[in-house]
Amino acid sequence: MGLWLMAAPFLVGVAALVVAPALVTLVMSLFEWDLLQPARFLGLGNFRELLGDVAFRASLRNSLTYVAIAVPLRVAIALGLALLMHRRMRGVGAERSAVFFPTVIPDVAYALLWLWILNPLYGPLNLLLGAVGLPTPSWLTAAASARWGVIVMGLFLIGEGFLIALAARRAVPGELYDMASASGAGPWARFVRVTLPLMTPALLLMATRDTILSFQATFVPALIVTEGGPPPYGTTYLPLFVYRNAFEYLRYGYASAATVLMFVLTASIVWLQYRAIDRARRGGLWAGSGLGGT
């Protein structure tokens, strides 16, 4: 009972701010509702309409592409930086802070900064690329470049994943590296046979968490930097699609149906990742690491 009481504030918060809105969203997805007039029951009508909606299909495709590219890149960069900065050395604190710093910048300020950086003619990125003789992409006017621009924006927001990777790397016992070195293992072999297996639970956790976040992380960049374009729907991702339908077109039921599909999609990917983790755990991928193996 004491444990439940201690957990009560958190449980109440989750119930009120997560579970209840999710249930309301699920119910709303079955209605047509503009918040102004009484809702009209449509059954699965919203879902049927979504399947034939060009904008929804484009936003679904864009979101899946984003997750497929951005998540591995973000996890890999967080891992790489954690490996570079896990040792105590002069100035490493400042370097770690620099990696974490972009994560605490407010989303809108961060997006406005990138609006300037990605300016196709006057932005520092293209000026730099041009100065060294590299091609200068049309970041905001070509669909493929714009999508890469959104991905690049996300690559600097890895502070939390970096901290997890850093903690996981520092938890690996140094003796294991000594033993590996003594048995003739070089740097690459030590990374593949010691570091990677022992950090795998943390990396999979990061990937799972990043997948969930990534489905939502495109909203502010797409709204402020690319405005969902260039047309047709070049950077319209699922959150922007939901926002426009709900808050601009007052189609809250339709937007709720898209949200439900986004949730199902996210849950499916996370479930697949969980299955992969479970299989790896049962297969003894990280047995004996003390980080979740049997």
């Binding site: 300016n119 196709p120 003619l121 006057y122 932005g123 049309s138 905001l140 006017t141 260039p230």
Partner: peptide, 8 residues
């Protein structure tokens, strides 16, 4: 052009 209009 598209790029110029986007830039300013």
């Amino acid at each position: 052009t598209d790029e110029e209009a986007e830039a300013a």
